[in-house]
Design a protein around this nucleic acid. Structure first.
Lengths: 156, 156
DNA sequence: CATTCCATGGTAAAAATTATCAATAACTTT
DNA sequence: AAAGTTATTGATAATTTTTACCATGGAATG
């Protein structure tokens, strides 16, 4: 399983980052991080908490929140920019951008290397120091489009 | 005052959009919208509410929330993508992008026409139908950078 | 093995947003 | 311009989301 190897690498990296930041590698942190690594759906703290209930039944929601906030500080995870109420998170893997479905709220990653290579506008130097850039695209995802067609079309 | 003329135009447009959407042009809606037009700081519902307190002392916070949600539906305002808890809003004016200061939370608009002109990656057609695209840049704003220097540097 | 210190869980508070419903204000018709 | 119709508002309260508190527990250090 190559995917599993990749995850092993990520987890080693995780331990290293924790230690170098003076954070203890607790079971909760490990599980929260690896759950986020496996997840493809940019889960919220609450979703993660539910998802981990089987593995760590006593894990508190507060710990999930705290842990995610901690991870964000040491740059292990990102808190997404969405226009929803619940915050969503993702583990940092490959550089990518986000497509947000305005209908169902789903977040879909996409790669756009030619954007990543482009020079930023010079105006920005006056505005501040840049950490990271990302493109956010709003629209209607394929699934929602299809569902819409099916409820509109059926005239038989 | 040219700025005032521009706003007059915007307000006329506002009334038109409301009517064509079957919405009544109430004083509350007018004031909330024009407060958002004047604002340059992408205020939250609560900030707007406080700001309007002098003008409309009985305006309820709930109305601000409801009104902003309504405006977003008919595409008069945008709910911003930030990674904060409180939602922020802006009136739709000129096409622009956002710089978010991770330190102070400030949102600064910037123009980037060469991005606006660029073609989106073809992968996206499979993902869904696109409504709008925007670039989000995270970093540290000039003011925060300066404040940081002043607290670090003073060694005299 | 004892000590220290950080992280966790449980509870509860704070912050942010939304629901309910009677009263009110805006548009329409006359 | 007045009355009727209907959407909108305000006040209150409920939900949802996130954070604070603090005693307990467990890992690392000496």
């Amino acid at each position: 399983m190559p995917a599993c190897n990749i995850q092993q690498q990520q987890l080693q990296h995780f331990e290293q980052v924790c230690k170098s930041s003076g954070l203890k590698v607790t079971q909760q942190r490990l599980e929260i991080y690896s759950a986020l690594l496996e997840a493809r759906d940019h889960p919220s703290a609450e979703t993660l908490h539910k998802r981990l209930d089987r593995l760590l039944p006593t894990l508190s929601l507060d710990t999930v929140y705290r842990t995610l906030a901690t991870f964000e500080k040491i740059n292990l995870v990102h808190r997404l920019e969405t226009s929803e109420n619940q915050a969503r998170y993702e583990a940092l893997t490959q550089r990518h951008h986000h497509f947000l479905c305005d209908q169902c709220g789903q977040v879909i990653d996409f790669i756009w290397q030619s954007f990543d290579a482009v020079a930023l506008p010079p105006t920005l130097t006056a505005i501040g120091a840049i950490n990271r850039t990302s493109v956010v695209i709003h629209g209607k995802c394929a699934a929602c489009l299809k569902a819409e067609q099916e409820t509109t079309a059926p005239k038989d």
